[in-house]
Design a protein around this nucleic acid. Structure first.
Lengths: 212, 212
DNA sequence: TGAAGATACGGAGGCTGCCTCCGCTTAACA
DNA sequence: TGTTAAGCGGAGGCAGCCTCCGTATCTTCA
C-alpha cells in the first residue's frame, strides 16, 4: 500500500539528510555507550534537535531496528554462501564463528540483538526470523546428511548462539564463545551408532517443534 | 573485624527493622518489575524514605547483592550434595537442570545474575566465584574419571549455563534451556577413542586457562 | 521566478527516576 | 531522665524521556 498512483510529494531533502545523520550518529553512540545511551546524545551528535530524532524514530527500538537491520542481513547472507561448503557441520560451525566475529566488531550489535530477543520489538520479528532461516538452512543440510541429531530446532540453535555471545563484555569473551560453540557443535553430532549410552528420555523432549 | 572489644553500640532497632523491610520490598519489586524497577518504588513499598534506602544500600547493585546472595548460596550447596552421585557427568547435568529450575522459580534471580556477570559489581565477585567453585568441583570429578574433555574451564561452563538461561523470558524457555544444556553436556563427553574424527586444531584452543 | 501550502525543524517544558544533603527525630546508654 | 550518636525522610538538583507547537524551510505549481 502507499503505492497508489496518488501524486506523492517528493520527500524533503533536509528530512532525508537528517534521517541519515541520526542513523550515523546512533550507530556511533550505541556502539560506544551501549544500548542505554542517551538519545539526546545521539541527537546532539547528529546535530539535530531531539524532536527531529523522535519524529523519524518514535521509539528507541525503532532506531535500533534501523541501525541494525542491515547488519542482520549480512549475517544471514553469509549463511547463504556457506550452504555450498562441503562438510555441512563444518559450515555450521563456520557460520557460528563468523557470528562471533561479527558481534565482536560491532559492539552495539549484540546489545541490539539481545534487546530484540528479549522484548517483542519490531527488530525481533525481523532479525529473529531472518537468522532462524539462515541457521535452519545450514542445520537442515547437516541433518539430512545424517551427521546431526534432529531434535534441535533452528530456534534452539539461535538461542544457544545468543547465549554463548552473551558474555560479550567480559575480557576474552571471544575465545570463550568460540570454545563453547565448538563444544555445542560437538554435542550436535549424531552419536556413533554402536557406542551411544542410552540416556533416560526424562528430559530429552520428543522433538523440537519445527516450522512446517 | 568489627570484632574488637571496643564497646560498639548496639545497632538501633529501627535501623535493623528498616533494613529488613527494604530487603523484603526489593525482593517483591525486583521480581515483579525486573532489575530496572524504580528504587523509589522499593522505598515506598517498604514504607521508608528514599534516603533510608540509599543509606542501607548505597547502590542498586548493593541491594541486589543483599537480596540474592542467599539464593546463590543455595545453588552452590546443591553442587556439594551432587558430588556424591555415582555418574559424574550425570551429576553435572543434574546441577545444570536444577539451575534452570532455580532461575525459573525466582524471576528476579536471573536478572541479578546477568547483571552480575556483565558489570563488575560486588555481586559478581561473590556469586561468580561461588558458582565457579561449585561447577568446578563437579567438572573436575568428571574429568578425573576420564569421561569429559579437559579443555573447558569452570568459568566457561558457567557462562554457557548463563547463556542458555539467557532467553528466560521467552515462552517455553525452560524446555529450550534444558534441551540446549543436554546438547552441551553431550559435547563435553570425551569422544570415543577409535571414532573421533580428528578436527583441525585451528580453532580448538590449546586449553582453557585454569585457575592454578 | 515567486507565492502558497505542506512538511519538517528544534527545543522548551512536563514528567519520572537517580542520588545527595542536612535539619529533625529517636533509640541506646549512663 | 538527659545526652548524644545514629538514623530518618524528603526536598532539591540533575539527567534523560518524550510531547507539543510556533517557526523555518522545502516542494510544487502557476
Amino acid at each position: 500500500m502507499d503505492d497508489h498512483t496518488d501524486q506523492t510529494r517528493k520527500p524533503r531533502a533536509d528530512a532525508v539528510r537528517n534521517r541519515e545523520r541520526v542513523l550515523e550518529a546512533a550507530k556511533l553512540v550505541f556502539n560506544a555507550g551501549g544500548p542505554e545511551a542517551s538519545l539526546e546524545a545521539v541527537a546532539k551528535r547528529a546535530g539535530v534537535g531531539i524532536g527531529t530524532l523522535y519524529r523519524h524514530f518514535p521509539t528507541r527500538e525503532a532506531l535500533f531496528e534501523a541501525v541494525y537491520r542491515r547488519e542482520v542481513e549480512q549475517l544471514s547472507e553469509l549463511a547463504e554462501q556457506l550452504k555450498n561448503a562441503k562438510d555441512p557441520i563444518e559450515a555450521l560451525r563456520r557460520w557460528l564463528h563468523s557470528g562471533v566475529e561479527f558481534v565482536a566488531t560491532k559492539k552495539g550489535m549484540m546489545a541490539a540483538l539481545a534487546l530484540a530477543v528479549q522484548s517483542g520489538s519490531e527488530l525481533h520479528a525481523f532479525s529473529f526470523e531472518r537468522l532462524t532461516k539462515a541457521i535452519g538452512s545450514l542445520l537442515n543440510r547437516a541433518v539430512a546428511a545424517g551427521e546431526m541429531r534432529a531434535d534441535i530446532s533452528p530456534e534452539d540453535l539461535l538461542r544457544a548462539f545468543f547465549g554463548m555471545c552473551y558474555v560479550h563484555d567480559q575480557p576474552g569473551w571471544q575465545a570463550t564463545a568460540l570454545r563453547l560453540l565448538d563444544v555445542f557443535v560437538a554435542g550436535l553430532r549424531v552419536p556413533p551408532p554402536g557406542k551411544a549410552k542410552a540416556r533416560s528420555s526424562k528430559t530429552t523432549k520428543p522433538a523440537a517443534k519445527r516450522k512446517p
